[in-house]
């Protein structure tokens, strides 16, 4: 690469980063503004204040926000776990075995993934109320599986296809049982794929708004994105903008931590040299 070319890359890269990070920076800055400051039209707050954070974590809004945070974490983690577990079996079969209907499974998964959520939410609302799933954790976990499972199956089977299955045979010749071969060789090789899938699935569930707002009515199951919409200002005449911004920052933090924490694992898994170079 010539110097000129590299400079172009750097400039373009900075441009893209600015474009992507600007809204986030704006929200962070908003979350530190006092209510009177919000419409000041400036990027930086005139006075830094933790007011919004104390509002959502300990103040009036905390009754709405904290249970929602717990719900979001609980529901999303369970949904992610279940969908990874199920997708693992499905992807293993899809990558390893030749069976009739393989194509159908994959295309059905794709069809489910692109099916518009909004069109099934109303029937689901009625159904859930009748069978008692409305406003419960399972009532959200099940639809979240429909969001996360297809994409999990697709990503994981793409990962699993890359695993050199000769490893498993080598392990068997070395004296391993099928289970030992799976646990000692295949699982470590598949782990990066599973982690990546888990992160993607978690984001999908974490970001859902439509199911969250439609299938819940109280703090029993309401997730954060839905709760944000219900925030009210300190007085009736005040917008809750600052509080929403603070809550948005709080819910973004786990996502960032997750990516930073697992990033190295994901990349490391993909660049391992299992076979001859």
């Amino acid at each position: 690469m010539s110097t000129r070319e590299r400079n172009w890359w750097i400039v373009a890269g900075i441009g893209i980063i600015l474009y992507a990070l600007f809204p986030i920076a704006w929200i962070v800055s908003l979350s530190f503004k006092a209510p009177a400051d919000i419409a000041n039209g400036q990027f930086l707050p005139t006075v830094f204040t933790w007011e919004n954070y104390s509002l959502i974590l300990t103040g009036d809004a905390s009754e709405l926000f904290l249970p929602a945070l717990l719900n979001s974490f609980g529901i999303c983690l369970i949904a992610t776990f279940l969908s990874c577990l199920l997708a693992m079996f499905a992807a293993y079969a899809i990558a390893r075995l030749d069976f009739p209907g393989k194509k159908i499974i994959l295309s059905t998964a794709l069809a489910v993934a692109i099916f518009p959520v909004i069109s099934i939410v109303t029937p689901l609302f009625n159904l859930w109320r009748q069978i008692g799933l409305y406003d419960t954790w399972p009532g959200l976990i099940i639809p979240y599986l429909s969001l996360t499972l297809p994409i999990s199956i697709w990503t994981m089977s793409a990962f699993f296809r890359e695993i050199p299955w000769e490893m498993e045979q080598a392990a068997q010749v070395d004296g391993a049982t099928t289970w030992q071969a799976f646990r000692k060789v295949i699982v470590p090789l598949a782990a990066p794929g599973v982690f990546t899938t888990a992160i993607i699935a978690f984001f999908l569930a974490w970001n859902d708004f439509v199911y969250g707002i439609s299938l819940t009515s109280t703090g029993a199951a309401r997730p954060v994105p839905a709760a944000l919409g219900l925030f009210s200002g300190a007085s009736q005449f005040e917008d809750p903008t600052g509080a929403i911004a603070a809550a948005a920052v709080v819910v973004t933090i786990p996502v960032i931590i997750l990516v930073l924490f697992f990033q190295r694992r994901i990349v490391a898994g993909l660049t391992n040299g299992a076979v001859k170079g």
Binding site: A170, A171, Q172, V185, G273, V275, K276
Partner: peptide, 18 residues
């Protein structure tokens, strides 16, 4: 295979990368 007590070298070696 595990009960046959044979050892094999594969064409692409099949070393365990981890």
């Amino acid at each position: 295979p595990r009960d046959r007590n044979l050892s094999m070298v594969f064409q692409n070696y099949a070393l365990y990368p981890h």
